[in-house]
Nucleic acid binder design. Structure first.
Lengths: 217, 217
DNA sequence: TGTACATCAGTGAACGCGCGTTCACTGATGTAC
DNA sequence: TGTACATCAGTGAACGCGCGTTCACTGATGTAC
């Protein structure tokens, strides 16, 4: 832990106001998207003048970065807690889906259309790889496949991103398909591409998950 | 064909200017994203005054709608042409990928984070279903699976979206997995989520495609 | 072929807006003796 | 416990900006007789 938790009244107050700012920011993002985020609008909502927010965030970009960080942290923590209480890969999949449905714009802030020119700071990529690790653990815990796919063999030679993880090549492969397939269903669902098709996205998600867990020849 | 092709000099000129406007708009979107689109900026680039553009588009939203339409039309046409010249499902997959890589922001305009509050007009959903039909055709042309999956059975009861298509339930299922899986890989690739992982997204795409085409038990 | 009129592309000024951000300031809260 | 000082949250005015959009207009292009 960093020097976060000092507890003078002033610091508690600061933390509280910061929290309210981000809360309002999330509301704004949920209704109008990330590009519509406005410091002045948030200040007005809180009954403060615009410049007051500069006591709490150095700039608009700073606020956005904090929101991105919160989103990553929230997902990482949610998955971590679920895994710690015994959820397997299928369990994590549903946790992921629930997390995404709770706040679609939050999901899109992490996995959606990138904001051109925006680069996440290093600590965020660290949280991102924590998420990956949790999922990789769950993949590695599954019964291993009998054969090694050609792509898994390729991954074995390009596992820099999982260099410090003991997962077998097949588990790496499974992690990638888990990630991309569920994201595929989820993002199209959240973007509304299934509306009007009269099919239940939850069932498609479930079908994909089942296929993912079925052992391969 | 509608009354598009009248050919008075004035109409040709109008079409030409409209085309240049959308061309500049695409450039702007490619570098700064859709939310940064500005009529005034486009006018300045063209050496015109801002209000001049209102001769060609009723509003900014009108321009965006036209861009969305162009994107859908481009993809629909690209797939249609490929299918007409004999591409099978695997071929269409690569056509799709190439189309996406050509202009990531164009892909995201169609399949990325939705613009909150924006609703596409009816003619766009028509083009969207033309895309689906092309892909569905290719799915139906594959050798049928031996068994019917539970999800395919479910789809058979909820095929409103493909009511006028003779595809077998398994083909519907295949179409959906084709769409969501390839979108999953593509959108994460285009959003840069594989950068730093030192793996070639093309191989992941190829592996997913191969799995998609392999017959099921 | 020439003239009278209608059409229409583009201009420049203007409106109102909300944005991010800076700055000098007031007033309340906390700290040190 | 009381006083002197430092810290810091929040204000209001101001800056400059670019946005979408309207309006009355000029001037060129096309049309009708």
């Amino acid at each position: 832990m960093a020097t976060t938790g000092t507890n003078t009244p002033r610091e508690r107050y600061r933390a509280q106001v910061r929290a309210e700012i981000t809360k309002r920011a999330w509301e704004q993002i949920a209704t109008a998207g990330a590009s519509a985020l406005s410091l002045n609008a948030i200040a007005k909502q809180m009954g403060m003048s615009g410049p007051a927010l500069y006591r709490y965030f150095a700039s608009r970009d700073d606020l956005i970065t904090e929101l991105v960080r919160e989103a990553y942290r929230s997902l990482a923590e949610t998955l971590r807690v679920a895994a710690a209480s015994g959820a397997d890969l299928a369990g994590l999949a549903h946790v992921l889906r629930d997390w995404a449905l709770t706040d679609p714009q939050r999901y899109f802030l992490v996995y959606g259309t990138p904001i051109p020119g925006y680069h996440a700071p290093a600590d965020i990529t660290a949280i991102s790889s924590e998420i990956m690790t949790t999922l990789l653990d769950a993949c590695a815990a599954l019964a291993p496949d009998s054969a090694t796919s050609p792509f898994a063999a390729y991954l074995e030679d390009h596992r820099d991103w999982a260099a410090d993880h003991p997962a077998a090549p097949e588990a790496l492969h499974r992690f990638l398909t888990f990630w991309t397939r569920l994201h595929g269903v989820l993002s199209l669902e959240l973007a509304g591409h299934f509306t009007g098709m009269h099919l239940d996205p939850a069932r498609l998600f479930a079908a994909e998950l089942e296929d993912l867990l079925a052992p391969r020849a």
